[in-house]
Nucleic acid binder design. Sequence first.
DNA 1: GTACAATCTCTAGCGACTAGAGGAGCAAGA
DNA 2: TCTTGCTCCTCTAGTCGCTAGAGATTGTAC
Lengths: 141, 141
Amino acid sequence: MTDLMAIGDLSRKTGVKVPTIRYYEGIGLLPPPPRSEGNRRLYGAKAVDRLRFIRHARELGFEVEAIRELLDLAEQPQRSCAKVDALAREHLRSITSRIERLTALKVEVESMIKACAKGRIAKCRIIDTLSHHEHCLHAEH
Amino acid sequence: MTDLMAIGDLSRKTGVKVPTIRYYEGIGLLPPPPRSEGNRRLYGAKAVDRLRFIRHARELGFEVEAIRELLDLAEQPQRSCAKVDALAREHLRSITSRIERLTALKVEVESMIKACAKGRIAKCRIIDTLSHHEHCLHAEH
DNA sequence: GTACAATCTCTAGCGACTAGAGGAGCAAGA
DNA sequence: TCTTGCTCCTCTAGTCGCTAGAGATTGTAC
């Protein structure tokens, strides 16, 4: 029943690298597992689930602190999921604002590149734009 | 003519914080300036230009290593600006790919939030989605 | 003279890992 | 049984671009 696996197997099962698993244990995202006689970590099915949850949340861009809260909430099935919803919405806001900021940068960098006439650096519009902020499309950055 | 200023004045003129200026000197983006008798840094007009260039490039998201190259190129007016153009295009590619990645995340997180019925955590679709990657719209993350 | 502001150097911290050193354990083949 | 080679262990330090703080010195205004 209790078929325990080594850290390498857990790594292969979840796609999370071995040092990262140990790191997660160090920061308290994963509980310290039991050890073998030879002091090796032994993981069961629960660890697989928890680590997959962590990995997926990280892939979706959640920060470790948010994941810590989500894991905590996931263990209290009776509670309202309002907090979960709030965490997800907060994360969505952060993604959206990063996209907005990057899009503004993109426009600026594109216009800089378009202005480049491929001549000498002395007349390079890219260097010029970098030197003089006032040449920018938008001043707010 | 040679009206030199202290680091605080340079900071105010460029909008770059004092510790950041010292940091830039430490990593070689700014040359070590001359010092006063009391060992304080003294900056001239060239430092203002160079620091403004750095600041602007950072605001546009260029990495320090790229800025180092750009500064280097800016000092060789006779050279072709092909390299400058390449650096800017590379940066644009990185911005674009970050936007794409974030947009994919946004879609995923949005759909997760929409599925939430605001009930108990036991039935929370957000927790559920995080637990089971296969519930995702796209599997490639 | 005496506050107080500005500057100096140095070290450590952020987030989320990643890389490497140096050593021990373990399974399979000769 | 021995050896080879893989996996695992702990610990430290590095990544990037700063930022924060300690503790000392210098400059300035009253």
